[in-house]
């Protein structure tokens, strides 16, 4: 019977690589010419297919609902003399919802592209809402910078999260969340301040920033424990002599 020269275990005829160590199995002709009955079927994995089917059903149903909603809104618009702006807002929101659903159902397989997609849809949504009255008022000054800021912080969070996957979740996820929130608040105040006064002077966000960052640093340094030099220094400065 054929065997793996590295593991020393026997394997069936016609097996090309060792199941344990993938080392190539020396070819030994089957002298008895046993008819080989396969022990396992070539297994199907229907999991992703089944999930996709269910997802498609959900998406199809929701698409029809959204299509109907848009139709109804247009009909209302043409029959009743409602305020055209209100109808336009609704239509833009409903269409944006359709794109959000598309992304949330995971049709874009990469998480990074999904987040980018959410950002882009949000941009179009805000641009559309801003442009309903025919003029762009606040999109470029407020909406766009805030969206870009949020995206950047989410990507930073994901980057840090992926790097610390095998570390303690209870320490690192809160720390990164705190860092994210503090950066977000500083960025937000910068944008608001700049647009309002064309100059930046931080106030509330600095408080948030300092508090959250120090908690995050404390958590992380507790995890890594303090380096010996600093420990030694603290000991030296704060030691209490008993004699």
């Amino acid at each position: 019977m054929p065997y793996c020269p590295k593991c020393g275990v026997e394997v069936d005829y016609k097996i090309t690589n060792c199941p344990l160590c993938t080392f190539p199995i020396p070819d030994i002709p089957d002298e008895n010419n046993n008819i080989k009955v396969s022990k396992f079927p070539r297994p199907e994995n229907k999991y992703y297919e089944t999930i996709l089917k269910i997802k498609n059903q959900i998406f199809f149903t929701l698409s029809i609902l959204i299509f109907c909603a848009v139709l109804i809104l247009i009909t209302i618009n043409s029959i009743i003399d409602a305020h055209p702006l209100a109808i336009n807002y609704s239509i833009i929101s409903v269409v944006a919802a359709w794109f959000y659903i598309f992304i949330f159902l995971g049709y874009i397989s990469s998480l990074y592209y999904s987040i980018l997609g959410i950002g882009i849809v949000t941009m179009f949504l805000t641009l559309g809402i801003d442009y309903v009255d025919g003029r762009i008022n606040w999109f470029f000054s407020y909406a766009l910078p805030v969206i870009i800021l949020a995206l950047a912080i989410i990507y930073l969070f994901l980057y840090l999260y992926n790097r610390s996957k095998f570390l303690n979740k209870f320490i690192f996820i809160p720390s990164y969340l705190f860092i994210g929130i503090s950066l977000l608040s500083v960025g937000l105040e910068c944008i608001l301040d700049y647009q309002a006064k064309k100059s930046i002077s931080l106030s509330w966000s600095l408080i948030v920033f300092i508090v959250l960052i120090s908690i995050a640093v404390l958590l992380i340094s507790l995890y890594y424990k303090l380096p010996d030099i600093i420990k030694e220094k603290i000991k030296r400065k704060l030691h209490i002599s008993l004699f």
Binding site: C7, V9, E10, V11, C18, L20
Partner: peptide, 18 residues
């Protein structure tokens, strides 16, 4: 699996793997 069955082989016990 590799370490486990190699250990058994080292004790001179025959093993067939499927």
């Amino acid at each position: 699996e590799k370490i486990f069955f190699r250990k058994i082989r080292k004790m001179n016990i025959p093993v067939k793997i499927e």
